[in-house]
Computed example of a mutant assay.
Amino acid sequence: MSTAKDLFIISMDAQPDAAVGQGDLSLALAGAELIDLIGARAVALDGDRIVPDGQPALEDGLLDRASAALNRQAPYEPVEEWLWRRGRDLSAAYQAALEEDGHLIRGRRGRSPFGADRLELTDSAARRGAVSRWKAEEPVLAALASAVGIHNGESQGPGLDDEAVTTVLAGVNDAVMELEAVRQRRSIEKAAFANVWRGP
């Protein structure tokens, strides 16, 4: 399984105690894809710019789509732009893929933050693999989960020594904080508008 699919599964397992925003998760999923593309040597980073480095067979439909979506012309795309562009509605794409593969099913009752129907993870090898990686405090998965507000107990986990991966993770954190700032600004504007209509 890809890091992005593992992250999605962990975000589902974290419900309902740690609600994950769709926008936050989509940004983190785009970061997870980029980290897997770096690991597969499909891309490299030149500073913060994503430089395509061939198109290897990735054996994952969504990662293949991510690779195909890369900007392959200089001066290439900065990590932050990739996160916002690729991340648009990406959590919905992963939900659909996991449903199609039988890793997610529609529950009989209740509602889910991921849609009107309650979604439940099946007891699959994919789920067990993601949980195993999570319990082992794998640093990339832990850092991506932390960016969207999911924390693995009290442990901070081991550090990262890959500069490219660290750059992507920093970009994910910055993008999530920017999205939260936009939410807060909109909330303030909405409250101010409501106050105008209520009057003194």
Rank of each mutant, 00 (worst) to 15 (best):
A57G: 11
D64W: 03
L62N: 11
Q73P: 00
R49C: 02
G54I: 10
R65Q: 14
R72E: 09
A66M: 08
D46G: 13
I50H: 07
G61Y: 10
Y76D: 03
N71C: 10
R72N: 03
E59T: 05
Q55G: 07
S67R: 15
E77Q: 15
V79F: 00
D53Y: 03
P75C: 09
A68S: 12
E77C: 09
P78L: 03
G47K: 07
D53H: 08
L58S: 06
L62K: 10
D64M: 10
D64P: 03
D48R: 14
A57H: 06
A57E: 12
A57D: 12
R49H: 13
R49W: 01
P56L: 09
D64G: 15
I50V: 13
E77N: 08
I50F: 06
E59R: 13
R72M: 00
D60S: 15
D53W: 05
E59S: 10
A68V: 07
G47V: 00
A74H: 05
G61T: 13
D48F: 03
D48C: 03
D60I: 14
L58K: 10
N71Q: 08
L62S: 10
R65V: 00
A74Y: 00
N71G: 04
R49D: 01
A74T: 05
A69G: 04
D64N: 15
E59I: 04
A74W: 00
P56R: 11
L62T: 08
R72A: 00
A74K: 12
A74V: 07
A69H: 05
D64Y: 01
Q73L: 08
G47Q: 04
N71S: 10
I50E: 02
Y76M: 02
Q73I: 06
P78M: 00
D48T: 13
Q73V: 11
A57Q: 11
Q55V: 03
V79C: 02
S67W: 00
A68R: 13
A57T: 12
L70K: 11
P56H: 04
A74E: 06
A74G: 01
D46C: 13
L63D: 00
L62Y: 08
D46N: 14
Q73S: 10
A66D: 03
V51C: 11
V51N: 06
N71R: 07
D64E: 14
N71I: 04
D60T: 13
S67T: 12
L63H: 04
A74L: 06
G47H: 03
A68H: 04
G54C: 12
R65M: 06
G54P: 11
D48G: 10
L58P: 09
D60C: 15
A66C: 04
P56N: 12
Y76K: 03
G61M: 14
P52K: 04
R65Y: 05
V51D: 05
D64A: 14
D53L: 14
L58N: 06
A66G: 15
A68Q: 14
L63I: 12
A74R: 11
Q73H: 10
P78G: 09
Y76I: 05
A69T: 02
D46P: 03
A57I: 11
A66S: 15
Y76F: 15
